[in-house]
Simulated scan of single mutants.
Amino acid sequence: MTAWPFPRWIAHRGAGKLAPENTLAAFRVGAAHGYSAFECDVKLSADGQPFLLHDATLERTTAEHGTAGDRVWAALSRIDAGSWHSRLYAGEPLPSLEAIARYVQCNGFALNVEIKPTPGVEHTTGQAVGEACTRLWQDQATPLLFSSFRPEALQGARETAPQIPRALLVDTLWPQWFDVAQSLGCVAVVANHRLMDAALVAQLQGAGLRALCYTVNEDADARRLLALGVDGIITDAVDRFSPFAALPVASGAAA
């Protein structure tokens, strides 16, 4: 297999339990716990600006309502995306992809951009994110990976940013998932950790693909996956899993 630039431990949505997910604040919290690789969700505003948000709608992580992708970036950028989490983060804004790119590049961090399109614009979102990342990562050496549950989004990204590696996300092993991953030129598959077993690791790694898992927050699950030899673990538990340890131990404890 080709060289893999990501560390094994990846912070989910920045540090999306300790701070408001998919915000710069969450990235800073993850970095404070020693993490150097991050995952985030990216979609498009109505005027084509890539920005960070997991859900199609705004209700869960802001005080606003409705489909986020129906609003222009000037309106989205003024939304409070922190108060839902705690008073400490009141006023924390939704970040643009460009803001996150500058942050990880300045710190030499790796980034896994999950392309999370608003339903109905999967291919267009992939194309736009690919174009943006081609521009933002020009002459940059910091590792970047695209992932998505939507093959159409990965195909769009492949068309505009063929040089950026891709990974297929799977929550179930649906028919032809493996063939789709290969046809898209993926370098990895990111699976629900409950799916990952020795046979799946062997299938992926035997085909030259990296085997990653989400979202791993329990010690027993992490130990099982590390014993299987997975290549990456995406976690919310940045305060409990040290990214420097060979086995999951509390951050700050001896490896």
Rank of each mutant, 00 (worst) to 15 (best):
A101T: 12
A101F: 07
R102W: 11
V104W: 12
Q105R: 14
Q105C: 10
C106S: 15
N107V: 03
N107L: 09
G108E: 02
F109G: 01
A110N: 08
N112T: 01
V113G: 00
E114A: 09
E114H: 09
E114M: 10
I115N: 07
K116F: 09
K116W: 07
K116R: 08
P117H: 00
P119S: 07
V121A: 11
V121G: 07
H123E: 10
T124Q: 15
T125Q: 02
T125H: 00
T125G: 01
T125A: 04
T125L: 00
T125M: 02
T125F: 06
G126N: 04
Q127W: 02
Q127V: 10
A128E: 13
V129R: 05
G130Q: 05
G130L: 01
E131A: 15
E131C: 13
A132I: 02
C133T: 14
R135Y: 00
R135L: 10
Q140H: 11
Q140L: 06
T142L: 02
P143S: 02
P143E: 00
P143H: 05
L145F: 08
F146S: 01
S147Y: 07
S148V: 07
S148T: 08
S148F: 02
R150W: 13
R150Q: 15
E152C: 04
E152Y: 08
E152I: 03
Q155R: 15
Q155E: 13
G156R: 06
G156K: 05
A157Y: 06
A157S: 06
A157G: 11
R158K: 12
E159Q: 15
A161T: 05
P162A: 00
Q163C: 04
Q163E: 13
I164S: 06
P165H: 01
R166F: 03
L168Q: 11
L168V: 11
L168H: 11
L169I: 15
L169Y: 07
V170L: 11
D171Q: 14
D171S: 15
D171A: 15
T172Y: 12
T172L: 11
T172H: 14
L173P: 04
W174D: 12
W174S: 12
Q176G: 12
Q176I: 02
V180N: 03
A181G: 14
A181L: 13
A181D: 12
S183L: 04
L184W: 01
G185I: 01
G185D: 05
C186R: 02
V187C: 14
V187Q: 14
V187M: 10
V187L: 11
V187R: 15
A188S: 14
V189I: 07
V189K: 00
V190C: 13
V190L: 13
V190Q: 13
A191D: 05
N192F: 11
H193R: 14
R194E: 08
L195A: 01
M196G: 07
M196I: 15
D197Q: 10
A198F: 02
A198S: 12
A199I: 08
A199R: 13
L200A: 05
L200S: 01
L200D: 04
V201T: 07
A202L: 12
A202K: 14
Q203K: 13
Q203S: 10
Q203A: 10
Q203T: 14
Q203I: 08
L204P: 09
L204K: 05
